[in-house]
């Protein structure tokens, strides 16, 4: 670099400061969740919690556990459903010749742009008629509207890069499309399948709009709807709400730590190369 300017270690300090400012809301959530009701409403708020009050979490977990389980079921189911539908389609789009393949890709791109609110309105009425309200499978289907188009495009971006020679060799050996798909494509695509699965999970876990309309019975409600209901009901128990917010954020945090590489890759390949 031609300009000396700042030392590299100074850049690290500035970078850390940027992160502190950006993540301050998250930090504030965690500290607030560990405070008692008196501490949280003190005239001078504590920057660092004086003493951890795990009681908040005990109560939050007691009320939110069924909803966390609900969310887990819905997000897992959505992930499985989405990967089952999206993976073969991505393979077909990238390697099997279809005449109208461009139309399918355009349809997938457009479907990502349709506002969920517009779909939600009609799907509520339709699901009501066919008995898919208050049904986990129904909600998984609606949650797939985020992830199936998105994931087909991510998977396709990767599968296009698989050399045709490998596939051709398999065909010459007499393997059909199905066997090529299972024995060659799937093992090679492991990392991108993880990425796709992560996004499907996170989208479904974070969904609120479909959940709040499709699930009306309290016992089925996923965590997002439960937090929303909690806010309107107990608007002053901020520590409880923050503890629930932390609990609901755990999957996002865990996935970020475990697989940040995949997440960045997915964010860029799902949109730019789409």
């Amino acid at each position: 670099m031609p300009r000396q300017g700042l030392r590299r270690s100074h850049l690290t300090i500035i970078g850390a400061l940027i992160v502190c400012v950006m993540l301050f809301p998250v930090y504030w959530t965690v500290t607030s969740s560990l405070e008692t009701n008196t501490q949280i409403f003190a005239t001078h708020p504590y920057l660092i919690t004086p003493q951890f009050d795990w009681q908040t979490y005990r109560i939050a977990l007691q009320t939110q556990l069924p909803h966390l389980v609900s969310s887990l079921i819905i997000a897992t189911g959505t992930t499985v459903l989405c990967v089952l539908v999206a993976t073969p389609a991505a393979y077909a789009i990238s390697h099997l010749q279809f005449k109208k393949v461009t139309w399918l890709i355009v349809a997938l791109l457009i479907s990502q742009m349709i506002p969920s609110v517009s779909l939600d309105n009609a799907l509520f009425i339709i699901f009501n008629k066919i008995g898919l309200l208050n049904n986990y499978f129904g909600l998984m289907l609606t949650d797939c509207t985020f992830s199936i188009p998105f994931n087909i495009l991510i998977l396709r971006a990767f599968m296009q890069s698989i050399p045709k020679d490998i596939l051709e060799a398999a065909y010459v050996d007499g393997a059909g499309d199905l066997r090529t798909f299972i024995q060659i494509i799937l093992p090679v695509s492991k990392s991108v399948l993880i990425t796709a699965g992560l996004f499907a999970f996170l989208f479904a876990w974070g969904d609120f709009l479909f959940s709040v309309t499709m699930i009306t019975q309290n016992s089925f409600q996923p965590i997002t709807v439960s937090i929303y209901g909690y806010i309107s009901q107990y608007s002053q128990s901020w520590n409880q709400m923050m503890a629930s917010a932390v609990l609901a954020s755990i999957p996002a945090a865990v996935l970020l730590i475990l697989s940040q590489r995949y997440i960045t890759a997915g964010m860029t390949s799902g949109s730019v190369k789409g």
Binding site: T224, Y228, A252, I263
Partner: peptide
């Protein structure tokens, strides 16, 4: 992280 959190959170 902010992008990954559920929007309700």
């Amino acid at each position: 992280l902010p992008w990954l959190l559920p929007l309700i959170v």
